[in-house]
Amino acid sequence: MLHSNSKRRGFRWIKGLMIAFLTVSLLTACGQKQASEGQASGKVVATYKGGQVTEDQLNAFLGANKFFNMSPYYGMLESSPTFKKDMLDQYIAFQYLTAGASDEIKKNADQKSEDQMKSLKESINTNADNKKKFEDMLKELKITEKDLQEYMRVRFALSDMLDRKFPDDKLKEQYDKDIQADKQAYVDTATVDHILIALKDQNGKDLRTKEQALARAKEVEAKLKNNGDFAALAKEYSDDPGSKDNGGQYKEANIDSWVPEFRQAALDLPLNQISDPVETQFGYHIMKVEWRNSNKFEDVKSKVRDKLVQAYFSDFMQKDLPGIITKVDLPAETPTPAPSAADAPAKSDGQVKPQETASK
Results as ranks from 00 to 15, higher is better:
residue 87 M to W: 07
residue 24 V to W: 09
residue 80 S to H: 14
residue 44 V to E: 03
residue 73 Y to K: 13
residue 68 F to K: 11
residue 61 F to K: 12
residue 30 C to A: 02
residue 25 S to I: 07
residue 24 V to E: 03
residue 52 Q to S: 08
residue 91 Y to H: 14
residue 23 T to I: 00
residue 49 K to I: 06
residue 54 T to V: 07
residue 54 T to E: 09
residue 93 A to H: 11
residue 26 L to R: 12
residue 43 K to G: 00
residue 84 K to G: 02
residue 91 Y to W: 06
residue 91 Y to F: 14
residue 79 S to E: 05
residue 32 Q to W: 07
residue 59 N to T: 13
residue 45 V to T: 07
residue 47 T to G: 06
residue 23 T to G: 00
residue 40 A to R: 14
residue 72 P to D: 11
residue 56 D to T: 12
residue 61 F to Y: 12
residue 41 S to P: 00
residue 76 M to S: 11
residue 67 F to H: 08
residue 26 L to I: 02
residue 70 M to A: 08
residue 56 D to G: 05
residue 60 A to Y: 10
residue 28 T to G: 10
residue 68 F to P: 01
residue 74 Y to S: 02
residue 49 K to A: 05
residue 57 Q to M: 15
residue 33 K to D: 10
residue 75 G to C: 07
residue 85 K to G: 02
residue 31 G to E: 07
residue 86 D to Y: 10
residue 39 Q to Y: 06
residue 31 G to P: 02
residue 34 Q to N: 15
residue 54 T to H: 07
residue 39 Q to E: 05
residue 59 N to M: 15
residue 46 A to I: 06
residue 94 F to V: 01
residue 39 Q to M: 07
residue 92 I to T: 01
residue 25 S to T: 13
residue 82 T to P: 02
residue 57 Q to D: 11
residue 38 G to M: 13
residue 90 Q to R: 14
residue 33 K to C: 05
residue 66 K to M: 11
residue 47 T to C: 08
residue 78 E to S: 14
residue 44 V to Y: 03
residue 74 Y to V: 00
residue 31 G to K: 10
residue 33 K to R: 11
residue 68 F to N: 04
residue 27 L to M: 05
residue 98 T to D: 13
residue 70 M to R: 15
residue 61 F to C: 06
residue 78 E to A: 14
residue 98 T to H: 14
residue 88 L to C: 09
residue 31 G to N: 06
residue 66 K to C: 09
residue 52 Q to W: 03
residue 27 L to P: 00
residue 82 T to C: 04
residue 42 G to R: 06
residue 80 S to M: 11
residue 82 T to F: 12
residue 85 K to H: 11
residue 80 S to N: 15
residue 63 G to Y: 10
residue 51 G to N: 02
residue 95 Q to C: 11
residue 76 M to E: 09
residue 84 K to H: 03
residue 59 N to E: 15
residue 83 F to T: 03
residue 39 Q to K: 08
residue 94 F to M: 03
residue 87 M to H: 03
residue 74 Y to D: 01
residue 53 V to R: 07
residue 60 A to E: 15
residue 68 F to D: 02
residue 55 E to C: 03
residue 27 L to Y: 08
residue 42 G to E: 01
residue 26 L to G: 06
residue 57 Q to Y: 08
residue 92 I to G: 01
residue 76 M to F: 09
residue 27 L to T: 02
residue 91 Y to T: 07
residue 74 Y to I: 00
residue 88 L to E: 08
residue 30 C to R: 04
residue 28 T to S: 10
residue 79 S to C: 05
